Simulated scan of single mutants.
Amino acid sequence: MVLLNERTGRYWSLNQTGRAVLLSLMDGRGPEDAVEDLARRYPSFADRIAQDVEALVRSLLEEKVVLP
């Protein structure tokens, strides 16, 4: 998935996991919901999923790609 911040012209390329997080947020769900979904889908990575989701959401918020 590719996102374009029309205000800055900056592109964001999201992998399948990033796409899942973004779609969860767009559905009105919180980051913790995305963490739970991804931990079920990828149990061997469960220990680092929360950190990765938090980092992605923070970056998207900082760049104003998504709004709080």
Score class of each variant (00 low, 15 high):
M1P: 12
V2I: 11
L3D: 02
L3C: 06
L4S: 07
E6H: 08
R7I: 07
T8G: 11
Y11V: 10
L14R: 04
N15T: 05
N15W: 03
N15L: 04
Q16C: 05
T17A: 04
T17N: 03
G18A: 08
G18M: 07
G18V: 07
V21G: 00
V21I: 02
L23P: 01
S24I: 02
L25E: 05
M26S: 10
M26R: 14
M26V: 10
M26G: 14
G28T: 08
G28W: 09
G30R: 14
G30E: 14
E32V: 04
E32Y: 04
A34K: 01
E36A: 08
L38A: 00
A39P: 02
R40C: 11
R41L: 11
R41F: 14
S44C: 02
S44Q: 14
S44W: 06
F45A: 09
D47F: 09
I49V: 03
A50D: 06
A50N: 02
A50Y: 01
A50H: 04
Q51E: 11
D52W: 05
V57L: 00
V57G: 00
R58G: 08
L60P: 05
E62Y: 08
K64G: 06
K64E: 14
K64Y: 09
V66Q: 10
V66H: 09
L67G: 08
P68A: 11
